[in-house]
């Protein structure tokens, strides 16, 4: 094993790229959960975003349109979930699962003829002088615009939730939908909006996979990343800033195990591939074990069905 062949700067860059789909999807889901809705369909919305973005980018030759369509596709699929859970009052866990199954199937159906193609390249933010700096240049200023957008999104969600009236209302809906309803807030509309936003974010995350990270389309390419995004929301204790920390942690594990596979470490590749999933479980256990603290941060109405009786 030759560790000197690992370039720390390249490792950090690939870590940030691996973490970006998670940052996007987890931030969206965080807002959804803050409004009191548990959407387990992140995986399905991501994979739909991955194929919608891929098709749009290949057909138009413009990655930007790819990301736009991915966000729309994710939001549309999320609206199916929203209508079922908010209007038809269906069970959120089961509906989320259905969303994942449906998304995986439909994306494979749509992407049948797109396997093996290469998408147009997403442009990097090439900032004069700054991008040419040694070390800091590649580590901080060498990414495509989506990476910066994802970090901005985290900041924006944090600002919205904690510093605006709208954020306060959304959190109130998530803590006690009955009280919010009694105050005259439109619980269902607010939740539908949050669900659509979460879907758009998941769609963007999926498109980042198929357009930048891989970049290619293959069936079921999300491979559990949507579920890991759900775990990151728990890890982050529903605080936007910590989402980045969680995503980088998982990005780091993923990149490390991939590099170890490439270095021919004497551990079977299959066992190395397990590590991100095992890591997720360990993190979940650590974050959930303190029941009092876990309950303090979780939205109190999370996953409960809202039916206004009057």
């Amino acid at each position: 094993m030759d560790l000197s062949s690992l370039d720390p700067i390249a490792l950090i860059v690939s870590l940030v790229i691996a973490a970006t789909p998670l940052v996007l999807a987890a931030t969206g889901e965080l807002l959804v959960e803050k409004s009191g809705v548990l959407n387990l369909g992140v995986e399905g919305m991501m994979v739909m975003g991955a194929i919608a973005g891929f098709i749009a980018a290949v057909e138009t030759g413009t990655p930007f349109l790819g990301f736009l369509f991915a966000a729309i596709a994710g939001a549309l699929l999320a609206c199916v979930f929203g209508v079922l859970t908010q209007v038809f009052l269906s069970n959120q866990v089961a509906t989320g699962l259905a969303l994942t199954l449906f998304g995986l199937g439909l994306s494979a159906l749509l992407g049948q003829s797109y396997t093996g193609m290469r998408p147009p390249q997403t442009e990097r933010a090439d900032i004069p002088v700054l991008s040419d700096l040694p070390v800091i240049g590649p580590v901080v200023f060498s990414y495509d615009w989506i990476v910066y957008f994802s970090l901005f999104l985290v900041l924006a969600v944090w600002f919205f939730l904690n510093k605006t009236r709208g954020g306060l209302v959304l959190r109130a809906v998530g803590e006690s939908h009955d009280a919010a309803h009694a105050l005259g807030y439109k619980v269902i509309l607010i939740r539908l909006g949050a669900i659509a936003f979460g879907g758009a974010c998941a769609g963007l995350g999926g498109a980042y996979l198929s357009l930048v990270r891989v970049p290619q389309w293959s069936e079921g390419m999300t491979a559990g990343i949507g579920w890991i995004a759900l775990a990151i929301v728990v890890f982050a204790s529903w605080k936007p800033g910590r989402v980045i920390l969680g995503a980088w942690l998982f990005g780091g594990v993923t990149i490390l195990q991939l590099n170890m596979q490439a270095l021919n470490v004497p551990i079977r590749a299959e066992y190395l591939s397990m590590t991100p999933y095992l890591m997720t479980i360990i993190v979940l256990v650590i974050m959930s074990s303190d029941r009092r603290r876990a309950a303090l941060n979780a939205p109190a109405s999370l996953g409960r069905v809202f039916h206004a009786s009057s």
Binding site: A98, L99, F102, G105, L109
Partner: peptide, 25 residues
């Protein structure tokens, strides 16, 4: 493609959960 079937299955679950409304309400 084989995946067409999971599209069906997801759809079936959607409809089932949606129609559940009429059981309780």
């Amino acid at each position: 493609p084989a995946a067409a079937i999971s599209t069906f299955q997801g759809m079936l679950l959607f409809f089932l959960l949606g129609f559940d409304l009429f059981v309780k309400y």
